[in-house]
Design a protein around this nucleic acid. Structure first.
Lengths: 136, 136
DNA sequence: TTTATTTGTAACTATAATGGTTACAAAAGG
DNA sequence: CCTTTTGTAACCATTATAGTTACAAATAAA
């Protein structure tokens, strides 16, 4: 189970998408909507900025999305938000003197890689624009 | 990121599938292949038994798969192994006096439900038989 | 040029989950 | 009966998460 980083990032981007036309938004403004504290929001903002999803400026705060909501996919947000993006963990250290132990890591790796690819394709088909329809 | 429970469960089931014809297998035998300790194996065995994937008996150990490897899907194993099966966590406690905060939980829930369903369909298309081909 | 504001980040804390381990009662084959 | 093995409870160490405080650096605007 992944952390709430993706969920909170979607929340952050949604608030920005809805307000960017009107005014720059600060981490404090967003934090009030999420009901958490500004530093936590800035930590995620920093990731979103590095992933080129938002524009920020000291003194002004977030000045807007770096791309249109139609061009930001859930996969983009996921890749920006999560450190450990692999869905399943593989146990290491299996016994090499056993037919299963000797090959299990490789087998699981290629198995999981395929599943991961399929899931990421699903994520890339959904955009921020799809999501914010709910809030308008 | 999910725990290694699915990976270790696949390992356990693979060893059983390969050896069941010859002899019953004990948690200790399996633990040696995984390079861990028998209690950890039994903890997972207990789940696999409750999910009706394996047959066990005190004194003998694991007496075999409860169904053929062709009829055990990765989804079956996943559901048996993991407690928290939801892929993404949702942050609670958002501010209801904000258009986004008021609806975000519901929006994320239905969004994630759809993604989850798609991923689980992928898992259900893969069987234990597919996996153990690698070990034979 | 100065000032006020906000980002960006480091450091620390509490809590929860994970993987690992020991221990032992209960079941059951032989 | 006796021996073996499951099934489970109770710990422990480690790690990740979410939350929080604090502050230097950047910068818009007066």
């Amino acid at each position: 189970m992944y952390s709430t980083k993706l969920s909170v990032s979607i929340h952050i981007l949604s608030v920005i998408a809805l307000v960017e036309e009107v005014q720059p938004v600060t981490s404090e403004y967003i934090a009030i909507s999420i009901n958490t504290n500004p530093a936590l929001v800035r930590r995620l903002m920093s990731r979103l900025k590095k992933a080129k999803l938002i524009k920020t400026s000291t003194k002004l705060g977030v000045t807007g999305l770096a791309r249109s909501a139609e061009n930001i996919s859930l996969l983009d947000i996921f890749l920006a938000a999560e450190d450990n993006r692999e869905m399943f963990s593989i146990h290491g250290n299996s016994n090499p003197n056993c037919p299963v132990g000797a090959k299990i890591e490789g087998t699981l790796k290629s198995l999981y890689d395929n599943i991961q690819t399929t899931t990421e394709e699903t994520l890339s088909a959904i955009t921020l624009a799809d999501i914010i329809k709910d809030f308008i």
